[in-house]
Design a protein around this nucleic acid. Structure first.
Length: 866
RNA sequence: GGGCGGUUAGCUCAGUUGGUCAGAGCGCCUGCCUUACAAGCAGGAGGUCGCGCGUUCGAACCGCGCACCGCCCACCA
């Protein structure tokens, strides 16, 4: 189809073609050279290998690509490090589910076969999300895709483990962990979320060994009492002081329990006496260690009661045991009271099951020593975290850091490089020689390997050219949910192993919520698929209206997400995506206007041609303003401002005014000069818009005569302050204001749309723009000396409307009266302000003067009216 | 229990250091198929900037209090 007939920009038609040209150019893949300080790099937050692109990725990717393209156009050697994360629990769970559907399980097929199966799964689905990033236009280095389980990457992981072990920072210990019965693994504190649950609070009487009376404790988990090893009361609690040191008898079991005093106990809660179960409660565990209590495990890793729970209960699930224990206690008359009790209970984010705190032999990382430099780097401003609130979160977390449980009882991941033979332990990157060694079956927490991402992807521990050229990276973009899980850990790992921060800036961007304010989630039906927006897929149920999205295209999605984004969460707003589509279409059509009028042989000027008219000077000046503003906004990570400035420039200045003023000259017979100038302005605008909406700008670029290969590789339009012209800006601003005033007047009196209204322009400073005003407002200015029938205020004076068929005198009378009314109101307001002695005396002179000028102007217009 | 953020037009959101800052897009109303675009153009209506008190000549903006909403951190049975 010829350009003449392409009246709409069709993203579906051009995006694949444009992406292929980018991809084939090789510009996504930089040869490593130079130092990191002169290059520009970003490490992508690696998506889960089997995941699909969601709104979070789309926003995160749009921001990064905007930054990458901006840097590339500014002549930087630019690398966007790409790859995927093996995502231990998430991936293993998916494959286990698949096995279950086939009627088998990982235990049944065995570890080797299972891992083999996951690798095959990864082969099958691992490229999906990468392809989806391409649909967004992401200019990642696809030639160097990394995976956290790649052989080289795995070597880096093992080296880090062994090094930290040798330094004594990694150790094995029996400690209380968050046991996730769903994934049958320990998980970290950060993978636990609290949910509100209403349980029953049971008041249970424990008889005293003395035979005189009993102590009543309150508990929501009666089944854990089988593991009780003490009762605690507050040392200052008078009710119990005499009992401290005595012994109580555990009902059903008969175990003798010491009554101890500990300040942890809250006297006002329950009965003020607390049963202590060191094996199954984090608080009790602490108290137990402080008082040297026995630690009994009555609930096992399978979620069932152990032999230690007694044969009456062993083998029951914890929930079954609770009922059995309660029934047994009731039988013995030990339950004096129950009440409903609503509280927060820990659940696994991974499996959704209730966390079972238990004591387990796990690997831990000691954190204080590693955290200190990571705190200092941010405190001293070597790493800047935006916005400020996130910086504080980061510091608070690291300053209160606890040991990190790094082992997971999974099969998919980096197996811990530790071997045992009897009492012997061997730790090393390669297996020990000799017979009889058995490797620790656990794997490392996924975040252990992700923490090495910015340097392990560049070839560390080898001192590669890539590492030299691109580490540290420039900026990390993320939502706040992985600030601790990932960002903080990258910082201390980078400092520890490369000796330098992993990035200079961390920008924490919005989380995009569903239109109704809920979290976007597939299971809730609130998730919106970015691909559905690009291609025009079905609207999810969270939208009130049904049907398919229009095919907005990638540019619209990028623009919309950037325009929605800020430093706080935002609700998804389809209208903002639509705005992006309109912008792309507008630019496309503005380009058609120019391109279809360019005479044969004319090419895009390399540098700004000398402007020959006031509107040329004006648009050149405004272009510099937009360029400066957008560059500043991108530099400050204020993408909302960048998109808004772009939109306003294109709509409010380029299209609404410049192109309209240009038309007579562009349509003239001999239009080489205005066409060349317009081509230049268009080229600059396309370059300016390219980082945000790369597809449509690249597409148009390919239609520009003599524009060169790829806009992607074109220089960024640097603002030139010398091209600003304040006088001309003011002159054209007056012309715009006058045009709008005249149009409003026309509408107010109901002038026939096509008619040209005769009038006399009675104001100075319009010599060079009067013709534009007349044409755009459909007026006919003359020197006719007749008495006017209407007066329209314009900057610096008035337009005196002459009698004609176009003017309805009655309508004009009404309009003039309304206008006068409004003017009187504003005059009163200005007068009272200037009558205020305090204002005149204390406000800056310029402010006072501005108010006086305003008053004069209002009075003049009112005079003219009457 | 601590901490952070929000509350501006019917909807989604901008509002830099207090003084043309009361804005944008969508939606709505009116009129236009004007030689790039009807996914368009022109014009318009609509808000006591959550509530109260204070600082100031002047507050959407600064301070205090309150009310909702959201998020984060925290081992209270």
């Amino acid at each position: 189809m010829g350009l003449e007939d392409r009246t709409r920009y069709d993203p579906a038609e051009s995006e694949a073609r444009v992406f292929a040209r980018w991809f084939d150019s090789g510009l996504f893949h930089p040869e490593p050279a130079g130092a990191a300080a002169e290059n520009y790099s970003i490490a992508i937050p690696p998506p889960n290998v089997t995941g699909a692109l969601h709104m979070g990725h789309a926003l995160n990717g749009s921001i990064q690509d905007t930054l990458i393209r901006y840097a590339r156009m500014r002549g930087k050697r630019t690398k966007w490090i790409l790859g995927t994360d093996h995502a231990g629990i998430a991936t293993q769970t998916q494959v286990e589910r698949l096995l279950a559907s086939e009627g088998t399980s990982r235990e049944e097929i065995g570890r080797d076969a299972f891992v083999e199966r996951v690798w095959r799964w990864r082969e099958q689905y691992g490229s999906t999300i990468i392809d989806q990033y391409k649909r967004l236009g992401a200019s990642c280095d696809y030639a160097e895709e990394r995976f956290t389980l790649d052989e080289a990457y795995a070597r880096a992981v093992l080296k880090v483990f062994v090094t930290l072990y040798d330094k004594g920072l990694i150790y094995r210990d029996n400690y209380m962990v968050n046991w996730d019965p769903g994934s049958r693994s320990a998980i970290s504190d950060l993978e636990v979320e609290d949910r509100e649950v209403t349980d029953t609070l049971y008041y249970v009487d424990y008889p005293l060994a003395s035979g005189h009376g009993s102590v009543t404790v309150a508990t929501v988990r009666p089944e854990t009492m089988l593991g009780d090893t003490a009762i605690a009361v507050h040392p200052d609690d008078d009710r119990y002081t005499r009992l401290v040191g005595e012994t109580a008898i555990l009902p059903l079991v008969g175990r003798r329990l010491r009554i101890i005093a500990d300040e942890y106990v809250k006297p006002e809660f329950g009965t003020g006496a607390l049963k202590i179960t060191p094996g199954h409660d984090p608080n009790d565990f602490e108290i137990g260690r402080n008082h040297g209590l026995d630690e009994l495990t009555v609930i096992g890793e399978d979620g069932r009661m152990t032999a230690e729970a007694g044969e009456r209960f062993a083998g029951l699930t914890a929930l079954e045991a609770r009922e059995a224990v309660v029934a047994a206690l009731r039988e013995e008359g030990r339950i004096s009271r129950t009440e409903p009790y609503t509280h927060e209970v820990p659940y696994s984010q991974r499996s959704g099951e209730r966390i079972e705190p238990l004591i387990s032999l796990q690997w831990f990382m000691k954190m204080e020593e590693l955290a200190a430099p990571a705190i200092a780097a941010v405190r001293e401003g070597r790493i800047r975290i935006h916005p400020e609130g996130q910086r504080r979160r980061y510091l608070d977390w690291l300053e209160n850091i606890r040991p990190w449980c790094i082992s997971r009882q999974l099969w998919w991941g980096h197996q811990i490089p530790v071997w045992y033979r009897g009492e012997e332990t061997y730790v090393g990157m390669d297996p020990p020689s000799g017979p009889g060694w058995e490797r620790d079956p656990d794997v490392l927490d996924t975040w252990f390997s992700s923490a090495l991402w910015p340097f392990a992807t560049l070839g560390w521990p080898d001192e590669t050219d890539e590492l030299r050229a691109f580490y540290p990276t420039d900026v990390l973009l993320t939502a706040r949910d992985i600030l601790f899980l990932w960002v903080a850990r990258m910082v201390f790992m980078g400092l520890e192993f490369v000796g330098d921060i992993p990035f200079d800036d961390v920008y924490v961007h919005s989380v995009v919520q569903a239109p109704d304010g809920r979290r976007m989630s597939k299971s809730l039906g609130t998730g919106i698929d970015p691909l559905a927006l690009i291609d025009g897929g079905p609207r999810p149920p969270v939208f009130s209206e049904g049907g398919d999205f229009p095919a907005y295209g990638a540019d619209a999605v990028r623009y919309g997400l950037l325009a929605m984004s800020s430093t706080q969460d935002v609700r998804f707003n389809e209208g903002t995506i639509a705005e992006g589509r309109q912008l792309a279409n507008k630019l496309f059509n503005a380009s058609r206007l120019v391109l279809l009028r360019v005479p044969e042989g004319l090419t895009v000027p390399e540098t700004a041609p000398a402007p020959s008219t006031v509107e040329d000077t004006w648009i050149l000046s405004r272009l510099q303003a937009a360029e400066a503003e957008i560059a500043e906004a991108i530099g400050a990570f204020e993408f909302h401002r960048a998109t808004r400035t772009l939109y306003r420039f294109v709509y409010g200045e380029l299209c609404d005014w410049y192109l309209e003023m240009l038309k007579p000259r562009l349509y003239a017979e001999d239009n080489a000069e205005p066409a060349a100038f317009a081509l230049y302005v268009l080229a600059e605008t396309l370059a300016l818009a390219h980082p945000v909406i790369p597809f449509v700008t690249e597409e148009i670029w390919s239609l520009m005569p003599g524009a060169g290969d790829l806009l992607m590789a074109h220089r960024w339009p640097e603002a030139d302050p010398a091209l600003r012209d304040a006088d001309v800006e003011a002159e054209v601003a007056r012309a715009i204001e006058a045009t709008q005033a005249l149009r409003t007047w026309r509408d107010g009196v109901g002038a026939a749309p096509g008619s040209r209204v005769p009038a006399r322009l009675d104001a100075p400073g319009y010599e060079r723009v009067a013709e534009h005003v007349a044409r755009l407002a459909r007026f006919e200015f003359s020197l006719n000396g007749d008495d006017p029938v209407a007066t329209v205020g314009v900057p610096g004076g008035a337009v005196l409307v002459l009698a004609s068929d176009a003017v309805d005198l009655e309508a004009e009378k009404r309009r003039a009266a309304e206008r006068a009314e409004l003017l009187r109101k504003e005059i009163t307001r200005a007068e009272s302000k200037l009558d205020n002695a305090g204002f005149v005396a204390k406000a800056p002179a310029a402010v006072v003067q501005a108010e006086r000028d305003k008053l004069d102007k209002l009075r003049r217009e009112l005079d003219e009216l009457s």
